[in-house]
């Protein structure tokens, strides 16, 4: 299953599907980092609205994505975590510490626009 990566100005937007396997996640991690380099993006928004389960592997992958992207000088915002998923995540001790989060895509864009003072 492929994760579509959309280029929007200086940002990249990756939208997760519901049933991503580990292989999909690994592929996405590589793909995103390559694209950040290619487009010299300033930030990446990862939209997880469709994910109904966020287990330790998915969470760890998100953190790794954020970390690798930071090493490339860009920022990552995770958007669209569902309330129930957030509850399960904290039960597991998965808090995505150090990674920016926002309610949804709109909020994520607003956050980044403010941060980088970019007008689209």
């Amino acid at each position: 299953m492929e994760v579509p990566i959309l280029k929007q100005g200086a940002f990249l937007i990756a939208t997760f599907q519901a049933a991503l396997s580990d292989a999909d996640l690994n592929q996405l991690r590589m793909g995103l980092v390559q694209q950040v380099v290619k487009f010299r993006s300033r930030a990446v928004i990862v939209d997880v609205t469709a994910m109904d389960v966020m287990d330790s592997f998915a969470s760890r992958t998100l953190r790794e994505i954020a970390h690798m992207i930071r090493l490339r000088g860009a920022e990552t915002v995770i958007v669209g975590i569902q309330p129930e998923v957030a509850f399960a995540m904290v039960q597991l001790g998965l808090t995505l510490e150090g990674v920016a989060t926002a309610l949804d895509l709109e909020e994520g864009l607003a956050y980044l626009n403010e941060k980088f003072k970019v007008t689209n």
């Binding site: 995770i78 975590i81 309330p83």
Partner: peptide
């Protein structure tokens, strides 16, 4: 503590 953490995951 978990409530605080979960709220942050929703961006609040």
């Amino acid at each position: 503590v978990q409530t605080v953490e979960a709220s942050r995951l929703l961006g609040a």
